[in-house]
Nucleic acid binder design. Sequence first.
DNA 1: AGCACGCCGACT
DNA 2: GTCGGCGTGCTC
Length: 810
Amino acid sequence: MIYVAEVIVDVPSMQTDNAYSYLIPDSLGDEVKVGMRVEVPFGKGNRHVQGFVLGTHYYQSLAELDNHDMKEIVSVLDLAPVLNDEMLALADEMAKSTFAFKITCLQTMLPSVMRASYEKFLVKKSELPADIELQLFAGRHEVNWDEAVASDFFPRLMGLRQKESIDVRYEVKKRNRSKVIQGFQGKLGVEEYHEAQKGLRKGSTQKENLLLFLQDSPADKVWSIKEVEEEFGISRNTVKAGEKSGWLEIVEIELQRDPYADRIFEADYHKQLNDEQQSAFNQITASMASESHDTFLLQGVTGSGKTEVYLQVIAEALEQGQSAIMLVPEISLTPQTVNRFKRRFGDEVAVLHSGLSTGEKYDEWRKIERKEARVVVGARSAIFAPLENLGVIVIDEEHESSYKQDESPRYHARDLAQWRAEKHQCPVVLGSATPCLESRARAQKGVYQWLQLNQRAVSAAQLPSVSVVDLRVEAAKGQMQSFSETLLTKIQDRLDKNEQSVLMLNRRGYSSFVMCRDCGFVLPCQNCDISLTLHMDSKKMKCHYCGHEEGIPNVCPSCNGHKIRYFGTGTQKVEEELKELFPEARILRMDVDTTRRKGAHEKLLEQFGNHEADILLGTQMIAKGLDFPEVTLVGVLNADTALNLPDFRSAEKTFQLLTQVSGRAGRAEKAGEVVIQTFNPDHYAIQYAQEQNYEGFYKREMVTRHQGNYPPFFYTVQIVASHEDENMAAKKMYQIVLELQKVLSPNSIILGPTPKTVARVNNRYFYQVVLKYKQEPALNEALRKILNDSQLDIRQGLKITIDVEPQQFI
DNA sequence: AGCACGCCGACT
DNA sequence: GTCGGCGTGCTC
């Protein structure tokens, strides 16, 4: 019998995006199973790569094989499959719908530690020239490839390789090592131990102790050697001797790193649902019972108790012996959220988020795989949790753009959730106070079941009063600062009353830059078509696109003038202003700079929650999911920076952000107040946000979308080509447009080609085309063809990305 | 991706 | 005449 495995190899390229057949050597016989990772030789030279087994089959004889010379699988990297059939099928679907390589999809589904790392070595085979021997090998049998490349000997080493004095060795390294400790397990029955005891030599007290211990311990019980040594005084050596006598077996015990092990979670019980919550709960659970796969849009204002509905729906799934996935945006995976789930579901919860170390993530994943956790709470990638028998998938804050991955595979967690829901015959619940237009429109059309929560669950809580300050008027009054008089008065008032304020600086598409007041010169990045941003903490000018850094100029490089000043408003600058205005106030700043370190985000929030500061100043990140009862004032310093971006979603994003941040004010008994500073007080996004009127905004925005032929009326696809040579990128996009014009129906719209807003990043030029269409059955195939036909250009340094339903158009 | 094969310019 | 450039093809 000849066993063959179909393997997708870890070479992400168009040409290798298919399975290769490998012989399964007899030695690995029944170890190789579908869904496992294997190490296989691939290509010339001794190169080894990681691969995923997608299928196995066997042949009676070599004659049956039409494939002539297959190579053999080198080794198996897993004891059990790491991807089940559902996940393999999902990877296939993802590759198809997002135009990604299969291998990239497979890797994305697993914790990052399971991605192999490769190392290359030069191995000495016979006597080497003295200088190489002495200075490079220095007595070692082999040296790392990188070390050899860095040395002066490299060209000569390649010559020696030709003469076979040196060989190259490849290593595929497994990184998913579970933490293990030594343990042992009894092998014999009570009677046999009794017999063994009789046969002992007089004075063998240690061994006798061990035998007595084994007799008393339950069969199959695995003991930790260390614990037994400490608690029962049976030494490590005695256990080893016991193994020699065949009484017991030494085994490895896989240790769990539980990031929440040292915390105690107070149990939390179901709260009484109000009528609306109850109705939502009933409809979702009815869908669960009916084994259909409905999508629900649970739309509820801040404080309406969406989370309690999620929790009870998930509890119901568990009750039915099923499992559940709860997706939340990364930024709101704060201890507040996690605690709530831990308190309700205890050890049944596995948490997956970027705050965990790679080892911890792996352990949480293993916990799910071993079916020890039936509830998974996590960010986007938690949609790949290998749960079986799913009862419900919840996506909280469904409008968040972080549910779409902005690199390949460009999947949207919502789409994959719906795919999985169909497989498991279970509902998907999308929750939000401000649903994205697409979802809200689908609810309107009855594609989604629409559930509304209009009452605030906590009866005492009132909606905050929102006032809008016209910055144009403020500017006319004279010296322009970041704060209007209205806002300053209110901040002072909170300080006097010892209440807290949250101030948000909307930095999207805007930041502080340096400009010469004489000639208007703005310092640009040398690699990108964008101005450099001032970073006061490091006293450097930085490019946010490519990371380039340089010093802050004192003199204008263009006119040699000395009036070079910063413009725009960064959080650092506002913080300084605040300190000057309110010297007595304790201020916390929260932005990318102060939250870069692991856990810094949580720590800042905790400090603020403990009222160790009066003012929290931050960027968008403060808008999401924090709940501080002492906060009675929320100020938005510049509401409209995002409004002017060339993106059809800018009004929606602005409305959502303002509504969300407003919800941070006055969540307890104290009434909250919100001040929005803006240059566009008449813009509908600002006005509806002031009224906290989602429905009004939805209706108005739908008109704009309809007029502009944008989603939800049209689907969109973005195609981007980039190249070091601007002409190459532009030429390719024109060529693509010609191709598309041949296949697209006249109802579809092609925008472009145009250079991207930032046309040059890292010395590459970017050109894009946006497609808008209602129905194009042949589009997928046409795009595939474009990718396939572009292989020559890709070789010449062209990069093409296809983004289906892009979230960002700039 | 990464490696070998192959066919044209500046060197021993 | 050869070393080495990078265009092209292929990887079970």
